[in-house]
Design a protein around this nucleic acid. Structure first.
Lengths: 204, 204
DNA sequence: ACCTGAACACCGTTCAAGT
DNA sequence: ACCTGAACACCGTTCAAGT
């Protein structure tokens, strides 16, 4: 076969198939991707520059899954919660994608727009000067950590052999899987917001 | 050559060479590693089960670089700061290792011991029940995020094209590189501790 | 016990050839 | 413009062969 009347491959199909593979196996490869779509490996390069661009397609898809809602009218605490929550929410459906994205730090316009909203929110809260950037980094660290936490296997949170009493106690109360991650996220969001509030009143 | 009188390879040499490669290139491979040590690729398998174990060796090395100090006598806020700081400190010398470690979630005894200290510290602070696990996850998310932040390239924090006023303002005040990451980490640590303190007084 | 070289299955990317 | 098959350089892992 050569050039077909209509293209056999679309960016959407590439993204779908790659995301399926990531969901199922935790990774993807060009050969497997091609087989999924039912096409030869090399033809993918007619639509995409390479593996990295496919990762970018998936990043965009996940960001689109939970569109960033407008927050400029909201009180800063609500705005901040909304932004972090919407960032994390896309990954709840594709948790295994998160670890693959930390390797490359690409800045597409959607991500920059999110940082801009974050910066505005933090200024509105009362931060200024260097503290704005530090606060962005702090929120970012928590958001990335929370996304990665979604991909954490159950086993990590299984009680270890005795000799770790406090840890065993903590894990004894643990709900499992998604529930544990969600509770931890809500808790962390409270801590983050309360901590920023505290930093403001203490005078930075 | 066959079996030499003294082994040509040691675990220490493997770890050194792999860490050098990660520092220089952001990754490592078995062929490159073998070339560094001056040995054949396959002989590495006489000392190590595979690539994953080499990653584990590097994780241990980095943990050893900043040994977890005893914290059981300290006030919980100081103890928490000390634990998070010591976790992060190892990565300051090998920042590019952090992204490689998030892919695999292994639990060696050193890491479990750190979680146990964390759990004890949080109990001492006054957390109980499910909150202990949530607080561990929160601290963990921040610590991982902060370690990854060390590997963030300068470019990410370069001011983007105009149209993002708040972000441009924030980046205008930015010190560069390691300095920015350090300030952000100290800021984040304050936020984390203040947030946990707030959560305690609000009554969880 | 420890090293070597050859082999295998897999990977990302390129490119001439086809329509 | 879009697809194919062959090719290339790289990778992780295994294994028979040597001492």
């Amino acid at each position: 076969m050569a050039r077909p009347p209509a293209p056999l491959i679309t960016l959407g199909a590439i993204t779908d198939a790659a995301l399926d593979l990531v969901d199922e196996t935790g990774d993807f490869s060009l050969p497997r991707l091609a087989k999924r779509i039912g096409v030869s490996q090399s033809s993918i390069y007619n639509h995409v520059a390479g593996r990295e661009e496919i990762l970018e397609l998936m990043r965009r898809r996940v960001l689109e899954l939970s569109p960033r809602p407008p927050v400029d009218g909201l009180p800063w605490e609500t705005a901040l919660r909304t932004l972090v929550r919407s960032y994390r929410d896309g990954f709840t459906r594709h948790p295994r994608l998160a670890p693959l994205l930390v390797l490359q730090t690409v800045m597409d316009t959607e991500v920059i727009a999110m940082y801009e909203e974050l910066a505005q929110t933090l200024e509105r809260a009362g931060f200024s000067g260097r503290d704005v950037l530090s606060a962005i980094s702090t929120v970012d660290a928590f958001a990335i950590g929370a996304a990665l936490d979604l991909a954490a296997p159950e086993v990590v949170w299984a009680p270890p052999s005795p000799g770790y009493p406090a840890l065993v106690r903590a894990l004894g109360h643990a709900p499992s899987g998604a529930q544990r991650a969600r509770e931890a996220f809500e808790f962390g969001l409270d801590v983050l917001v309360a901590g920023l509030r505290g930093r403001l009143h203490a005078g930075g």
